[in-house]
Computed example of a mutant assay.
Amino acid sequence: MQALREAEAELTVYVHPSNAADVRRAVARQLSTTLFSYEDRFDGVLLAHEVIVDGGQAKILNGLVPFFGVLVHANLLLYSPQPDMILEGKVELLGKESIHAIVLGVFSAAIMSDDINERFKFKRRGDRGKFISRSDKHHVIRKGSMIRFSVKRVDTEMNCHITGSLIPPHTGSMHWLSIHDAEYTSEINSHIRRSGNIRIKIEQNEQDHRTLDNEDGVISSERPHKSRKRALEE
């Protein structure tokens, strides 16, 4: 998936004195409070992190409770969608006027009727509906389908809510594309191993985010640097 990228960043994490006995764990807790929400300094949503603590440098904040700063070098996995990128998501809701999907099990995306290719026709049966290709009745998008779509707009105020499109080529039902679209099939085969490693990283950090208790602290940083800007395929 093109929206996933790796980056490196230098951070200063301010830790409460009560956590001085285990600085590494305290730093991990502070970074975990930023998981799965958009951060301007990262230009994306932090999904996973690996940190190296520099124990040789520290800075004390003035105040009644003197937090101390720890210099951290962090390797980050970021979700940073941009217009014209190709994403994948699971359809959660659809109707004649729109398709709503979830990306990476967390982030929302909406595809409105104007951005659904004319080759698809909406059909309703009972209380459910589906989009069927006019050229191939086996190309179907329904609730629960995995779809591939293009990014039109990204709303960072809504935690990277995406407005998408099914008009560009190589978009639609991922199941159908995997059989009938040679370019998409080749892309899957060349990156299938890498996707497993990324999924493990995200799931592990999501679990840590749920189980770790919040602690008082401050994180300051510059934007990530030395970004490898490598697209990671899911």
Rank of each mutant, 00 (worst) to 15 (best):
S135V: 01
V140Y: 05
F149G: 12
H175E: 12
G172A: 01
G144Q: 10
I132H: 03
I132W: 02
E187D: 08
S135Q: 07
L177Q: 08
E183H: 05
Y184E: 01
D155Y: 05
W176L: 04
T163V: 04
S173F: 02
T156L: 03
G164F: 04
W176M: 05
K152D: 05
H170W: 10
T156A: 04
H180T: 07
G164D: 01
S165P: 06
I167C: 08
R134D: 12
S133T: 09
H139D: 15
L166D: 10
K152I: 15
E157T: 15
K152M: 08
F131R: 07
I179V: 15
C160V: 00
P169A: 12
A182W: 01
H139M: 00
G144T: 14
S145I: 12
S173A: 12
S178H: 04
L177S: 03
G129D: 12
T171H: 11
C160Y: 09
S178M: 03
P168Y: 08
V140M: 11
I179D: 09
S150R: 13
H175D: 14
M174F: 01
S186I: 02
G172W: 02
K130P: 00
H180L: 02
T156N: 09
S186M: 07
R142N: 04
E157L: 15
S178R: 11
M174P: 02
G129R: 11
T163P: 00
N189D: 13
A182P: 13
S133K: 02
I141G: 02
S173I: 04
S145V: 10
E187M: 06
I162L: 10
M158K: 15
M146I: 10
H139P: 01
G144R: 08
Y184R: 07
K137Y: 02
M158E: 15
T163I: 10
I132P: 04
R148F: 01
S145N: 08
S150E: 15
S186V: 00
K143R: 14
K130W: 04
T185H: 13
R142I: 05
S135L: 01
T171W: 07
P168W: 09
H180N: 14
S133Y: 02
H139S: 01
E157D: 13
L166F: 07
V151H: 06
D181W: 10
K137E: 10
S165W: 00
R148M: 00
G129Q: 09
K130F: 10
D181T: 10
I132A: 03
I132T: 09
S135G: 01
V154N: 09
M174C: 15
S145F: 06
S186R: 11
T163E: 13
I141R: 03
R134G: 04
F131I: 04
S150V: 03
N159Y: 06
G144D: 14
M146F: 08
L166K: 10
I167L: 02
M146N: 13
S165K: 08
R153N: 12
